[in-house]
Amino acid sequence: MNAILEPVTGRYVHFEHGGRTCRVYFEESGQGIPLLCLHTAGADTRQFRGLLNAPVITDQFRVIAFDLPWHGKSSPPAGWQSETWRLTSATYCELILGFMQALELNKPIVMGCSIGGRVCLNLALDYATKFRAIIGLQSAAGTPRYYDPAWLAHPEVNGPVAGAATVMGLMCPDSPEADRWETLWHYMQGGPGVFAGDLYFYQVEGDLRRRVENIDTRVTPLYLLTGEYDYSCSPQDTQDTAAQIPGAQVRIMPGLGHFPMSENPQAFISELLPVLNEIVAAHEAGIAG
């Protein structure tokens, strides 16, 4: 038998949030500078499988990704049956910082995609000193509402399948078929109402268009990487955001869409590596200086 054992390990960590204990699942691989990865709305840590298994990344970085509560293997806290998941900026930041504290992560690079890319802007605004660098994927301060995610929680709609159908066109048509369909599988496994609850943050509550001009990239470098096929957070959306933030660095990724790390991991890693190398070089120059 030709078995392959991946270097990725998965564990659970318990920490307090909102007066309750969260049991949060996370995966990690590699060693070196912590690279904390944040998944998209309605999805989970599996989106970062390519990164977690890429020696070119894990030789230098400790890649860590966690499932938000209500997502993936992080079950909702007790009592969820009488609640509705609704992500807000404050909750999102508290959960990220709580996870970092629980794992004693010291100045990681944080990299989030979509809702994770948006919250990266919150982190750059309010918690910049806690991070070595911030990388927003498919990140913009705000995007217009062009569909109503409430339908994804309608009792006569198969929400997870409709959610997958909603996002399937956000990927580059030329991304590898197996990777595109695995990305959709993650959406098909989402909990009821969770994708819609995440989009409350993305579409309604978490609009930062009036605040991002206050981000100071001299405190922590900010990189914004956006796939050209994304029409939810389009390249123009990212460029408009960056235009408000002196020092923000933009990289438009050809041949990629809204889920760069999972729809085409190899192409994404090629785009990410120069950014990571630049962060490391700047850090080492800072130490030497």
């Binding site: 109503d148 339908w151 994804l152 309608h154 709609v157 909603t166 399937m168 939810s232």
Partner: peptide, 25 residues
């Protein structure tokens, strides 16, 4: 994707939105 056109309003959806979502895939 048609949702890209929903954003630009180059394609409009009319009729039963529930049915649209139910059979979107």
């Amino acid at each position: 994707d048609i949702f890209a056109y929903f954003r630009t309003k180059e394609v409009l959806l009319a009729g039963d939105t529930r049915k649209f979502y139910a059979h979107l895939m």
